[in-house]
Amino acid sequence: MWDKIEVAVEKCAKNEMKQKPDPAHLGFGKYFTDHMFRMTWSREEGWHDAKICPYQNFSMDPAALVFHYAQAIFEGMKAFKNEDGQLYFFRPEKNFERMNDSAQRMCMPRFPVDQVIRALKALVYLERDWVPTEYGSALYMRPTMIAAQPALGVQPADLYYFYVILTPVGAYYKEGFNPTKIYVSDEYTRAAKGGVGNVKAAGNYAASIYMSEIAKKEGYSQVLWLDAKEHRYVEEVGTSNIFFKFKNELVTPELSGSILPGITRDSTLKLADSFGVKAVERPVSIDEVIAGAESGDLEEAFATGTAAVISPIGELFFKGKSYIVNENKVGALSERLYTELQEIQHGEREDPFKWVMKVN
């Protein structure tokens, strides 16, 4: 499995290349580039048939295990381009290390991180004209692994497909970098300790859709999930980790087995510490959050994730009542974190953490 993987390159014909979208109206996940990366794992051959090829459909058996037992994992990453045309990745090794952790938990094969990063560099360089340069935009990369063996019966597959597709993206939320409205769910839960909430398994997101649709119908952008046992402690918000800035400290829920260890979460903790802000990982109850919103001790709240980077929260809806955070304005810390993370990601600010990786 760990032998050098040879990557073939099959370029898309010029007359088959897609028209690139208007960079001012990218949205999120609407457009896909001309090429993708894919490789196959089988129990007999390990990882093989690695190639950069034209973006294409898969032909899969209706009995493929992924359709029946949800053996599927993925990651979310971004590539950035500055005004000089330099391309950057942001901590890609951390995403792929986490993906290997997800693979182990889901009984799927791990892969050589350094070799996959080299293949990803080649793919993004080939698609460099798709990388937007507008502030807040990026080329989003979606590595995915699925069980492709045709069989019925709950079991690890003997055949897997790994692939990476690329999409130029703008702001994740329609609100852009403005405060979002969050619905707190005390009825449904995202994940329980001992389950797969701490890995990026596709089924986690499928399970969240029902409550998310309820929240959207009520006018809210995302759902704030509480713990599965007591419905008391804050865990995640939508597809992101969450932070609360109280008067004396910046707090995020500790990684207790049901929370995804976000790359942006970790970066936020380290960056805040470099600002001299006391950052703490500990249990946070919804009662503490609501009391802080009412008293004013809760000065800011924001979500962190690859897609939205930093997403300020201006309103929480809990048990039939709305609670406003920071007068529904973007907080100073949220704005500074967002700005400095973006500047580091685009190579526009000194990177003391050695987070960015040059592509070309």
Score class of each variant (00 low, 15 high):
2 W>E: 13
4 K>H: 12
6 E>C: 06
6 E>Q: 12
10 E>H: 13
10 E>S: 12
11 K>H: 11
21 P>A: 13
22 D>A: 12
24 A>E: 15
28 F>R: 09
29 G>M: 09
30 K>T: 06
33 T>Q: 07
43 R>F: 12
46 G>R: 07
48 H>M: 13
52 I>Y: 07
53 C>L: 15
53 C>W: 08
54 P>D: 13
58 F>G: 05
58 F>M: 15
61 D>A: 12
62 P>Y: 09
65 L>E: 10
68 H>I: 05
73 I>M: 08
73 I>S: 04
77 M>R: 02
80 F>K: 03
85 G>S: 06
87 L>M: 13
89 F>W: 03
94 K>W: 09
103 A>V: 07
105 R>P: 04
106 M>I: 12
107 C>T: 14
111 F>G: 00
113 V>T: 15
116 V>D: 02
117 I>N: 09
117 I>G: 08
119 A>Y: 11
119 A>L: 09
120 L>T: 12
126 L>V: 11
126 L>H: 11
128 R>S: 15
132 P>T: 11
132 P>D: 06
137 S>H: 14
139 L>P: 00
142 R>Q: 07
145 M>R: 01
146 I>W: 02
146 I>H: 00
147 A>M: 09
148 A>M: 10
151 A>M: 06
151 A>D: 06
154 V>Q: 03
156 P>D: 10
159 L>N: 13
159 L>E: 14
162 F>V: 01
164 V>P: 00
164 V>L: 11
168 P>Q: 09
168 P>T: 11
169 V>I: 13
171 A>Q: 11
174 K>C: 07
174 K>P: 10
175 E>G: 05
175 E>V: 12
177 F>C: 06
178 N>Y: 11
188 Y>W: 12
194 G>F: 12
197 G>E: 05
203 G>V: 08
205 Y>M: 11
207 A>K: 05
216 K>W: 06
223 V>R: 00
227 D>V: 05
228 A>P: 02
232 R>K: 14
232 R>D: 06
236 E>Y: 03
238 G>H: 02
239 T>E: 10
241 N>R: 06
242 I>A: 02
242 I>M: 04
245 K>T: 08
246 F>G: 00
248 N>F: 07
248 N>H: 14
249 E>A: 14
249 E>M: 12
255 L>Q: 07
258 S>I: 02
259 I>H: 01
260 L>R: 03
261 P>G: 05
262 G>I: 01
268 T>I: 14
271 L>K: 05
271 L>R: 03
277 V>N: 01
277 V>Q: 11
280 V>S: 04
282 R>H: 08
285 S>M: 06
286 I>W: 08
287 D>R: 15
288 E>C: 03
291 A>E: 12
294 E>V: 14
294 E>I: 13
294 E>H: 08
295 S>Y: 10
296 G>S: 10
297 D>T: 05
298 L>A: 04
299 E>V: 15
304 T>E: 04
305 G>R: 00
310 I>K: 01
310 I>F: 07
310 I>R: 00
312 P>H: 03
315 E>N: 12
318 F>Y: 15
321 K>F: 08
322 S>Y: 03
324 I>A: 02
326 N>H: 15
329 K>R: 14
332 A>D: 13
333 L>D: 00
334 S>P: 02
342 Q>A: 14
345 Q>H: 14
347 G>R: 11
353 F>N: 09
354 K>H: 14
360 N>I: 08
